[in-house]
Nucleic acid binder design. Structure first.
Lengths: 237, 237
DNA sequence: CGTAAAATTGATATTTCTCAATGAGAGTGG
DNA sequence: CCACTCTCATTGAGAAATATCAATTTTACG
């Protein structure tokens, strides 16, 4: 365990310059509101592997992911892990009803979040129903994704899981960085396995199998799509 | 395929008499609002096996389940089914962002819903942020349940899945009908299998195995808990 | 460079599924 | 009221998918 390298930037950032302004929660705010909102959030950096919050922690903040990728996961008492999602810039974390987080969140690579203390954020929402509507919209979208993932976990084969993950991840990156046949995979094989309900060996074998069949190319830090139709066929199955 | 036996009751119901008043969405409404709200909803009955709405249907209504149990599910193109949840009285259905339902819903046994047309319901919410907050609360609770279910689907053994389902279902019924060692199971074995990501044979075998070990008793229409500690041990695993 | 972590590969074990047969309840019509 | 039939549930035997255990190989990092 090394010393925490979390750093909190001094204030002085402007929402209007924010990379995720446009598609994050705050997209529902008008310029005047934004100036007020600006004072609520605080940029915080996390280094590779650091935990931003843990399941069962009292939830004291909301987080708006600005840069980097996070893994969101739950652990069983015996250590089995299920990754319930990966967070990308623009994602809003920390919603809960019990007052505690219901999953843990780690940085995969360096991460920057915009952190809001719960109470002032709650007061800010209070008289801004459009922001609440936006948050609700995000929650419902996540719910829909969660249900899709249940189908994958409960009813799909390893090949289908891996193919679906690849194209789904590519699709999410698409809205951030544009489309490409190169799919960067910042997370480890173990992360992918824990996301898909498989073992690391099965994920690895499935990648090599797809590569042997000419569907993909395993490159450093990601996957190249060589025959997308083939991968899509597995997803459509 | 038999003729639909859906029946729509003439109006004239009072929210104040409603069985789910107290814990449904409408619990956030005050008596005056309730009288206005009363005119928006319409009771509709569905018979066993009928489909209330289908995935990909344009979502024209919201539903508040008043009586009965529903299965909520998604299908893969080749017919594989994943049940993403069971709905009980008080559950609110129909939230979406795409304008289409993202799962299908069937009646398991006779069902009564309180149906709201989307547009008037939307207008009613418009200037009632507390109702929106209530809806958001329900969405976040569902999201948390969905994540728990992902862990079950991705990381638990058949025994653990069945045990977790039994105690979870019992817990949900508890808040409606009080506790008991008898756990009624209105859904079929196939439904349970499709909820747990198993086959019907595995569910059946797991039940008999638990019965042989003295943990449960298989009775008609449900399960009796004979050694709850034993079942709980599987869940805690 | 050297060491540790991550990924791949192979051999084998285990779980769960598939296919097939049997059994039990519920409703139906004689 | 009783066979009959249909659906649903259970059980068994064997197959298939994925997990486990173990050994390399590759990559990252000090």
């Amino acid at each position: 365990m090394r010393a925490s390298v979390t750093t909190i930037e001094p204030n002085g950032h402007f929402c209007s310059d924010c990379a995720v302004r446009g598609f994050a929660v705050c997209s529902s705010l008008d310029p005047a509101e934004l100036r007020e909102f600006e004072h609520l959030g605080c940029r915080v950096h996390f280094a590779t592997g650091e935990t931003v919050f843990s399941e069962e922690d009292i939830a004291t903040s909301f987080y708006n992911l600005l840069e980097g990728v996070m893994r969101l996961y739950k652990l069983l008492p015996d250590g089995r892990r299920q990754i319930v999602g990966f967070a990308l810039p623009g994602d809003f974390l920390g919603m809960n009803i019990s007052g505690r987080h219901n999953f843990s969140a780690d940085a995969i690579g360096a991460v920057t979040v915009c952190q809001f203390a719960k109470a002032p954020f709650g007061r800010f929402i209070e008289d801004r129903p459009h922001l609440l509507r936006r948050i609700n919209e995000l929650a419902i979208r996540e719910l829909s994704q969660a249900r899709d993932h249940m189908v994958l976990l409960g009813r799909r084969s390893a090949d289908e899981k891996v193919a679906t993950f690849l194209l789904g991840w590519r699709e999410r990156l698409f809205s951030l960085k544009g489309s490409s046949n190169m799919v960067p995979l910042p997370m480890s094989r173990q992360d992918i396995a824990d996301y898909l309900g498989l073992t690391i060996e099965t994920v690895s074998r499935t990648f090599t199998k797809l590569e042997r069949h000419g569907a993909i190319e395993i490159v450093h830090g990601g996957i190249g799509l060589r025959d997308r139709a083939r991968v899509e066929a597995l997803v459509a199955a």
